[in-house]
């Protein structure tokens, strides 16, 4: 058995040399991803966050069309298909940049992943993984677990099982509604975050507001993940 720990390391917090010199001609790089002088592709700095990589501000509402257009543009710049006749060094950079770009696009495209990523950037911690039910759902979840156990132990063709199934279906609908409610709460928080970013104030009040939004966002995101996992488990059981 292997002994690996479960930290998904985020590359951007690792210490890396700042990219300022072209790896090939050693001149100062001022262009975005290509050296102005020798036109060689440059490795995307690991310090660069996904928002900056796409040229977007750290806002939570994103124009999907623009995101996609930028993804396609950068794919054309980095994809290994266009580096087949280039040196090994350039092929390696192309591969690394493409892989990074694909991760960045996948993260920013999905509103939940985008918010989790922003939280990680702004609050500097890995997302909470909840192992106990949120307080307001405690009783409900415990009861649900009992019903699930009962259903698993029952003869699936029996009347008891049919009744339990109906009960679980109702529970499922309720939890899915709860998930949607949390998502609309998140949507509101996203709006408040963007408004705060747009105002760009540096007051104590703005900082307090910022911390409040991030804390609320973190709480709802981890509750939502918890509920989502419960729903998935439920769906798999009664399927």
């Amino acid at each position: 058995m292997d002994g690996h720990t479960h930290q998904h390391t985020s590359g951007r917090r690792e210490l890396q040399m700042a990219r300022s010199m072209c790896w090939h001609c050693q001149s100062e790089v001022s262009g975005e991803y290509f050296c102005d002088r020798c036109v060689k592709v440059q490795p995307v700095s690991k310090e660069l966050d996904y928002f900056t990589c796409f040229g977007f501000p750290r806002r939570l509402s994103i124009d999907q069309q623009k995101l996609e257009a930028k993804f396609y543009e950068l794919s054309r710049a980095f994809h290994p298909d266009f580096y087949q006749n280039k040196s090994d060094a350039e092929q390696t950079i192309s591969l690394g940049n493409s892989a990074m770009l694909n991760t960045a696009y996948r993260t920013l495209r999905d509103p939940i992943q985008r918010a989790e990523y922003l939280l990680d950037l702004e609050a500097g911690s890995v997302k909470d993984i909840r192992t106990t039910p949120p307080a307001d759902l405690f009783e409900e979840i415990l009861e649900l677990q009992d019903t699930l156990d009962e259903f698993r132990a029952s003869d699936r063709t029996s009347d008891t099982a049919a009744a339990l199934r109906t009960q679980l279906q109702t529970e499922r609908a309720a939890l899915e509604q709860r998930q949607r409610d949390m998502e609309s709460q998140l949507q509101q928080l996203f709006g408040r975050w963007d408004a705060l970013q747009d105002r760009g104030e540096a007051t104590d009040q703005a900082r307090a507001e910022r911390d409040r939004i991030l804390k609320d966002m973190r709480d709802i995101l981890s509750n939502r993940t918890y509920v989502k996992n419960i729903v998935n488990d439920l769906v798999a059981t009664i399927a």
Binding site: M1, D2, G3, H4, T5, Q7, H8, T9, G11, P80, L95, G96, S98, A99, M100, N102, T103, Y105, R106
Partner: peptide, 24 residues
């Protein structure tokens, strides 16, 4: 997942002086 795709994982040891970790 769109390719090229990469993922990083950190590994460490559980026993003092352990010289290898088996990965499957």
């Amino acid at each position: 997942t769109t390719i090229p795709a990469s993922a990083k994982e950190m590994f460490t040891t559980y026993v003092d002086g352990q010289t290898g970790v088996d990965i499957h």
